[in-house]
Amino acid sequence: MERTLKNVFVKGPISSAFIGNSIAKHQSKTTIGAHNIFLGQVRADVINEKTVTAIDYSAYEDMANEKFHEIREDAFKKFNLTCMHIYHSSGRVNVGEICLFVFVSSPRRKEVFKALEYIVERIKVDVPVFGKEIFEDTSHQWKTNT
């Protein structure tokens, strides 16, 4: 089944209310027996004695949404998933706040464990998102995924 291109980006942090609502929406989908959720949280890294206070995310959004779509299609082919949702922040996200929310659901648990790791690793490598790490003194550096 071909799925339409979605906009994955949300402005600012992803709230726990938004995440809770997403879970609640799935109660009507009763073929699902297992959900798995990944939440990326902004970490207060200390770099050269300066502490990160926030990350300002930007992206090549057109290409990023295409890449998210590819990852979604590949995951549906590889794993027996009922549904999948991906949200990524754009703009400023403070430390302790959520910047990535990946939510997969399947009839069975084994599929969601494998699928979630696959999706998150692909996002880290393939999607053109850039992160400006902002320090307490308002100086900054650019984050690189390792």
């Binding site: 990326g40 990350i55 995310y57 992206a59 090549y60 057109d62 290409m63 990023a64 295409e66 990524h88 910047c99 990535l100 998150v120 996002i123 880290k124 490598v125 393939d126 999607v127 053109p128 998102v129 850039f130 992160g131 650019w142 984050k143 690189t144 995924n145």
Partner: peptide, 27 residues
Amino acid sequence: AQDRKLVSLDSLISGQELALLPPFAGG
């Protein structure tokens, strides 16, 4: 990236849009 696809340096310019992409930091 040329028209939203990564390309190598010896690629021909055939698209409308090029993008210079520093290391990715999503997630």
